[in-house]
Design a binder for these strands. Structure first.
Lengths: 133, 133
DNA sequence: TCCTTTCGAGTACAAATGTACTCAATTCAT
DNA sequence: ATGAATTGAGTACATTTGTACTCGAAAGGA
């Protein structure tokens, strides 16, 4: 089991997202990959990278003079933890009200509803399969 | 339309949750209502209340020597904004992957699946009703 | 070779956040 | 009435976060 690492801030999350996208790269490449609409300074990216490494979210290996970074934690893992944290914070850990809010508070296209249907049906299927065993 | 107020921190959120629960009350009562497992100091609650008022999340009215506070923003509103922020941050605004993660990353009881079904069916119903008009 | 660009490493610093103390006024129980 | 508890108001302070600058080494182009 991994240690539980410190949580990350919004800015750090953005940099991590960029790194997940490019899989690996130096600060320059990460900088390129960060959502441009954020208009994040190179130095700022640099700082976040440093902090992320300190927090154990990514590892680096030297290659010549520069450093290649790589995420040390999979996206799904971080996302899961963030969701858990969020559901606990806002709904005392009860995820259904969360889903309800999610779908209630925005307009959803028919396609999305169908996708939702599919997701839930799959769940139900799995559950029935399990019951049958 | 309301101004967009500053966002609130975890601690502030907890105090706001407490206030939503008791509807209204002085700092003492809010303090009592805060999730005890957080073990939040009276003074800390006091500070959060002050900051929440400054941020426009709650209003107060004097009653004698003490002050009665009341939430100025409905829970649903705050929750919606928080969810939006979260979905944007983690899923670039795309809520389906969010739901998928939500249901994938935990064990869900049959009852909960049925509830989910109900929620989604209701959605579908609404959508069809709308189409019919 | 000399200039420009690129990095890493370190430092800076204000705002936000978590957490708490002080003090003065007041209220309450004995 | 007097000491204890409560409350509002203000202050304190370390940590985290957002944002950025400096400096020096290396690398690459002219």
């Amino acid at each position: 089991m991994e240690e539980k690492r410190p949580s990350i801030s919004r800015g750090e999350t953005e940099v991590l997202k960029a790194l997940w996208q490019i899989e690996q790269g130096g600060v320059g490449e990460i900088y390129e990959a960060v959502d441009p609409s954020l208009d994040m300074d190179y130095s700022t990216v640099q700082t976040y990278v440093r902090r992320l490494e300190a927090k154990g979210y990514l590892t680096s290996q030297r290659r010549g003079r520069s450093k290649i970074y790589e995420a040390a934690i999979r996206r799904a893992q971080v996302v899961r933890e963030a969701i858990d944290e969020f559901v606990h914070r806002m709904f005392d850990g009860d995820f259904l009200p969360m889903v309800k809010h999610l779908v209630d508070s925005r307009e959803i296209s028919s396609d999305e509803i169908d996708d939702l249907m599919r997701i839930v049906n799959e769940l139900k299927q799995d559950q029935e399969d399990k019951d049958a065993s």
